[in-house]
Design a protein around this nucleic acid. Sequence first.
DNA 1: TATAAAGGTTGTATTTGGTATAAGGTCAAG
DNA 2: CTTGACCTTATACCAAATACAACCTTTATA
Lengths: 276, 276
Amino acid sequence: MQRLTVGQMAKLNHVSEQTLRLYDRIGLFSPAHRGENGYRYYDIKQSALLDIIQYMKSLGISLKDIKKQLEGRDLTMIESALREKQRQTEEEIKRLKTQRRALERTIESFSRYRSAPPDGTLQMEYIGQRQMYVVDTRVNFYDYDFEHYENSLRRLQDSLVKDDLPQIYFCNAGTILSRENFLACRFYSTRLFVFVDREFVPEQLTTTLPAGNYACIYCDDFYKEKAYIFRLRAYINEIGYEVCGDYICESIADIPVARTDSRGMYLRLQVPVRFR
Amino acid sequence: MQRLTVGQMAKLNHVSEQTLRLYDRIGLFSPAHRGENGYRYYDIKQSALLDIIQYMKSLGISLKDIKKQLEGRDLTMIESALREKQRQTEEEIKRLKTQRRALERTIESFSRYRSAPPDGTLQMEYIGQRQMYVVDTRVNFYDYDFEHYENSLRRLQDSLVKDDLPQIYFCNAGTILSRENFLACRFYSTRLFVFVDREFVPEQLTTTLPAGNYACIYCDDFYKEKAYIFRLRAYINEIGYEVCGDYICESIADIPVARTDSRGMYLRLQVPVRFR
DNA sequence: TATAAAGGTTGTATTTGGTATAAGGTCAAG
DNA sequence: CTTGACCTTATACCAAATACAACCTTTATA
């Protein structure tokens, strides 16, 4: 029977020597013999056990749990552990898919940010259907300053957490001003929203924003909003359209990273319109 | 401007106080002010930066990297970091899907193991198409003992690692004896295989085993194989069939966990047959 | 046989992103 | 004035390794 040193065993099984020593120390996997020189000597047949360990590890089971399982050697327990692992894996896949979508969204918005028209640009845009998650803060944003807006964002975050939604959407926020208030120039808005993906959020939690033509004005400063709303209204009258839905103030630079620099807050103020 | 203590800030942003102190210590995110009493006082507006951090963290970026990105404040760098992250996420999803499949396979084989016929059972079975990953070890298994078989498994593992395949398949091993050798009772086999999933392994690395009727005998001991091969041959002759392909020795108790106990090595010796 | 290289041993520190705890200082209310 | 809530720092701990220092053993070569 050949005796394998730690290095040979390591190479044979594609693990590092350190790892084998660690496994020995924690009592998970020890060499068949110890030489008088203190050397670890493994038996090739021990590879089978190492396989099992590698396999369980590949399933994401912790070394401690692996040790327990192997000591228990109870097949039914192992089976239920596997089922539990399966459940976890399913969940993790779901989480990663959400993450992938979030990344997609963010990268997308980078290019949107780069190609956004300059501050003050007025234009008509056709915008497809959107889903939003809305929270009513009961406090009028226009009465307060940016600091209060931050406070409201916290409230929104609370809601997202409570509804068990990924906080990733958080970067996509905006406010809603009702059609009536918009038309009357009554700056009263208590509703905050984030855009969400249909596939990742239960339908009953979302509000649909219909596809259609929107009159839009781009704005690079939170404090310019009121002035720009007047310009937007003038523009709509000028081209002979009428407002057919709620006004929203959308942060299109929804790259949260960008919020560290002053230009990060880039807004697309918009309101759905139709021919009069 | 309201000053928020660490506890208030923590609650507001759904992080723990400890976490805020940690972020302060590593210089990632520090309070706006420090009281003379040493208290941390945050400004609500700092939440924006914390959002960014949470967002990047949710993308799996390390705190160290987040710090670097935020210090650099270079949008293009952040963008490429996001793309890199996207790539990683894609890979991770792929890995998890493989893992999910492996779990499925293992759980499946538990029930197969439980419902397997007793040792010595002879029967005809229709088996669907299978994919295998084959390695030629150039050494005859029948000349050596179980210890040598382990050695060959290591060789197989090397190949799997080299071909960048999940070692999960590793638990599904077996050996191939050519039709001619089987018919001549020449116990000469150098080919080792693992069953693999078509979807997870490049086609050019696999060999297809056709669907069809297989004469099978179940065997609970590696050392009984030769004797059982004779019984299998006798059975085939008896029922008037002829061998139409290579014989394989498949470990159906492909639960690596089971290999710790002696019954774990449960084999289904099989050979494709047809009417004479 | 001397020596050098390769490979073995132990112990300790580092990593990541926190959590937990102890020992002690501060604040606000009753 | 005391109580309890809250803050501070420092330290240790977690998993699953990795890395390094200091030292010992084996093996090959000059």
